[in-house]
């Protein structure tokens, strides 16, 4: 059922088929975070892959910079309804970070500096669908957008792309992360408008 709003006319004629339902295009880069932006200097940053509390891999900043990186051009969609097309990033594919990891886990809890968490199915992080990104638009990733490094998983709403990433924890159960505990969707597919629990 569609309720037409009296007097409202569409003024954005270029409806883009790359824009998921309920989203609008912006050229800016708005910020969504629950609290202040944590300050994590590069030389204090490190990143881990863990399984059942056990550290499988870890990289300091310099070690991470020595990994093979990719240039990435993707569309991003925030649950607060803005989308940006063709954003450019540089980072390391999660496939490479998890290569040869042997696990029965089906889910991942991404953890951030500052305490943020978000839950994801492991398969959504694989096959070239997710990266740990440390550059945006050819520059170091600014802190308010998740620098020094963030998860980038553009096929899900952007709250899944955890900023200030600290670890990926392989887990058996899909336990909700920060926003998911507060009523946001466990999966978060923008094309199915999975904004809130129950969508």
């Amino acid at each position: 059922m569609v309720n037409v709003t009296r007097g409202f006319r569409s003024r954005r004629f270029a409806t883009d088929d790359r824009l998921p339902p309920g989203q609008y295009l912006t050229d800016g880069f708005p910020v969504l975070s629950a609290g202040p932006t944590p300050a994590v200097p590069q030389d204090e940053w490190s990143f881990m892959v863990r399984n059942g509390g056990q550290v499988l891999r870890s990289w300091a900043w310099d070690e991470f910079m020595a990994l093979d990186a990719q240039d990435i051009t993707v569309d991003i969609h925030c649950v607060t309804r803005w989308s940006r097309l063709d954003t450019t990033w540089r980072g390391v594919a999660v496939d490479d970070l998890l290569a040869d990891v042997d696990t029965a886990a089906e889910y991942v809890l991404a953890r951030s500096y500052g305490g943020y968490t978000t839950n994801l199915p492991l398969e959504d992080l694989l096959d070239g669908k997710a990266w740990i990104a440390y550059e945006h638009d050819g520059e170091d990733l600014p802190p308010e957008h998740g620098g020094p490094a963030r998860l980038l998983i553009p096929h899900l709403y952007l709250w899944k792309s955890a900023k200030w990433i600290k670890s990926l924890d392989l887990v058996e159960d899909d336990d909700p992360g920060f926003w998911e505990t507060l009523g946001y969707h466990d999966y978060g597919d923008p094309w199915r408008e999975q904004r809130y629990q129950g969508d």
Binding site: G28, V31, S33, A34, P36, G115
Partner: peptide, 27 residues
């Protein structure tokens, strides 16, 4: 957004703890 970034950074610098600062950015 810019206001929230500045204000929360000032609060952190003044010694408020990050987990006692809740933010909402309007865009």
């Amino acid at each position: 957004t810019g206001f929230v970034e500045e204000a929360s950074n000032h609060l952190l610098a003044a010694g408020h703890h990050a987990n006692r600062i809740r933010t909402e950015r309007f865009g």
